[in-house]
């Protein structure tokens, strides 16, 4: 059974595109047929994060307007021949696509692919409505900040109204050191507030910026913690039960120290 999953957040810049690129690549690495759809019309980015920006000929709006067939617009990934990108149009407005057209497109893609991941634009307007139409499930990306969690809460309500129930939470850019000091909300805090199931925790990691610079998703880096975090989410999307990463790497002594408030000055 093919599955269409929208990656959304409400607030901008919290990591939707990074998440989409890494989960798509990770799913493809495990042999699934994956199509990534960049629904951020006018601000296309997924191509760059995947390092595919030089191969684009047609885009999503071309497909919807009938200028080309879906197959012609799909760009094959450099690394995996079972991973494809349907890029967003860069020079068009969000209203160049209607929800009904998106639903039709996703339906068509589901005949070809196992997983369709839709990278949603920030906001709750037309672009959001387009991106969620046709989706079976949703991932909500948030960072441990008041504004991001607040927007996530609003998105959960809007998804429910669109009959997309029980979205899964991805907490991005967590800083275990700050959580320990009591200067950042913990994972549990966010689960308590949003009351949706957690599917992954991705640390704040400069490796992500480096890998984005190169157009090579960090999920492929065996030794990276962020990469491991994405690989775990991929396994959970497959339905496996994977324990959550221990992001605190200070060891028992370090944790005891910080418990006593003494480990903060290094």
């Amino acid at each position: 059974m093919a599955k269409a999953i929208v990656v959304t957040s409400g607030k901008g810049g919290v990591g939707k595109t990074t998440t989409t690129a890494n989960l798509g690549t990770g799913l493809a690495q495990l042999g699934h047929k994956v199509c990534l759809v960049d629904a951020d019309i006018g601000l296309r980015n997924l191509d760059v994060v995947l390092g595919l920006e030089n191969r684009i000929v047609f885009d999503l709006v071309d497909v919807v307007e009938g200028n080309c067939r879906v197959r012609q617009a799909l760009i094959k990934d450099k690394r995996f021949n079972n991973l494809f990108l349907l890029p967003a149009a860069q020079t068009r407005e969000k209203d160049a696509v209607a929800p009904e057209q998106m639903r039709e497109l996703i339906k068509q893609l589901k005949e070809e692919f196992d997983f369709i991941l839709v990278d949603c634009p920030a906001g709750i307007e037309q672009g959001f409505r387009n991106a969620i139409s046709g989706a079976d499930d949703a991932l909500i990306v948030t960072t441990p900040e008041v504004s991001a969690v607040r927007d996530a809460d609003r998105i959960i309500g809007l998804l429910e109204a669109a009959e997309i129930y029980e979205p899964k939470l991805v907490v991005n850019r967590i800083r275990p050191d700050m959580v320990r000091k009591g200067d950042m909300m913990s994972i549990q805090d966010m689960i308590d507030i949003l009351a949706i199931p957690l599917i992954g925790v991705v640390p704040d990691d400069e490796v992500i910026i480096i890998s984005t610079n190169k157009g090579e998703p960090v999920v492929l880096e065996k030794k990276s913690k962020a990469g491991q975090a994405y690989r775990n989410i991929v396994r959970r999307l497959e339905g496996a039960e994977v324990p959550f990463l221990e992001l605190e790497d200070k060891g028992v002594v370090g944790r005891l120290m910080s418990l006593l408030g003494m480990g903060n000055k290094q």
């Binding site: 008041v146 809460d153 609003r154 009591g182 805090d189 507030i193």
Partner: peptide
């Protein structure tokens, strides 16, 4: 009174408002 608890409390209150005016 560390900043995490301030954040949680502010979120709690803002969400009561947001959620009640949602529909």
């Amino acid at each position: 009174d560390n900043s995490k608890n301030v954040a949680k409390e502010r979120l709690r209150l803002v969400l009561i408002h947001d959620r009640s005016s949602l529909s």
